[in-house]
Simulated assay, not measured.
Amino acid sequence: MDNLIRFETVSDYNVFNNAETLHPMVSVIDMAKANPRHAYNMYFGFYTVFLKEVNCGDLRYGKNTYDYQEGTLVFIAPGQVVRVENTGETYQPKGYALVFHPDLIRGTSLGGSIQDYTFFSYHSNEALHISERERKIVLDCFTKIAYELEHAIDKHSRTLIVSNVEMLLNYCIRFYDRQFITRDEVHKGVLERFEHLLNNYFQTNRPQSLGLPSVAWCANELNFSASYFGDLVKKETGRTAQEYIQAKVIDMAKERIFDQSKSISEIAYELGFKYPQHFTRLFKQKTGIAPTEYRALN
């Protein structure tokens, strides 16, 4: 990849941004102290939380640009490559970044639950837009972490730093819950589109050739990341996206079971199951009875 800059360690990223390394595993960076930049690709070997404060430079992940404006937060997980773009020759970044290496949280409660913070897997049009009050909370968390970094490292340092990182991420879960509600216009019709997508899928021959639709496939068709889409469906319905798909499969199966000319195995293959016994197991799990019993009862 052209112009790829790899940041394997926190120290690498500190050097790039003219920031002092106070701790090898974590840093809070004032982006205004960094040198003016141009377009390039960045590989991150650690977790990164960006707080952008002015309109300068656009972040891209995958094929799309982040919905990333003044007063937004973007989360990047280790192993991701992000592109920075801007319309001019160079630009001056402004804002703050919290970066922490996976080794910092290994063996802690945060290390055990980091996968629950699904926003690290979000991408285009899925940045967190925060209010002025929320921004102050984020900056307060950054300040507390920075304070611990400036304090001489002792036996309490790691516990306090990790606790403040975890508090920040928990606040971000709350802010995202609020955003799912306040940005209703952006998400308007997602469930209707999801339902329409599934109906169309099962009315074609695609299940026989492609199998059951996955959450990732549905999310991609609806222009969401799998994580954001899954969280959105969960907030709207109380069910996971996978449970929603399974419910649709069972509804389709119930209709087709009435067709006595087809065996249960044929119906299973039509719906995209590779093995009929997997269909039977799911049907019984969701309805309490086997497909053959359901046919006999009805």
Rank of each mutant, 00 (worst) to 15 (best):
N35A: 14
N35G: 12
M31E: 11
A77E: 10
K52R: 09
H129M: 09
Y47H: 07
Y66H: 03
N298V: 11
F273I: 01
I130S: 05
L160H: 10
K274N: 12
A247W: 07
A253Y: 01
C141S: 04
F202E: 02
D103Q: 05
K274T: 13
N298T: 06
V249C: 06
K274S: 11
S227R: 03
S11Q: 14
R174V: 14
T237Y: 06
P207T: 06
R256C: 00
F100L: 02
I181N: 01
F279H: 03
R37S: 04
N220R: 12
D251V: 02
L271V: 04
I153W: 14
A253M: 00
R83Y: 10
Q277K: 13
E192P: 12
E8Q: 08
K144I: 11
L22E: 04
L4M: 06
A268K: 05
Q179G: 05
H23C: 07
E132I: 15
M167G: 14
F7I: 03
F229A: 03
I145H: 00
A39C: 09
P102I: 00
R256D: 03
T87V: 15
D67W: 01
E185R: 14
K284I: 08
K144D: 12
Y61P: 13
G45C: 07
M252K: 09
N86F: 11
E85I: 08
I257C: 01
H101T: 03
F279N: 05
Y176G: 13
Q246T: 09
I245A: 02
M167R: 13
F229L: 05
L210I: 08
L169N: 00
Y40F: 10
A226C: 10
F279Q: 04
I289P: 00
A290E: 05
K33I: 06
E20L: 08
L4H: 02
S121M: 11
G230R: 06
N3E: 02
M25G: 15
V81P: 03
L210Y: 13
L191K: 02
T204R: 07
T72M: 11
I105C: 01
N199F: 06
L98G: 10
S11H: 07
E85Q: 07
M42D: 12
R37K: 00
P207M: 05
F224L: 07
V186E: 05
F194E: 06
T204F: 10
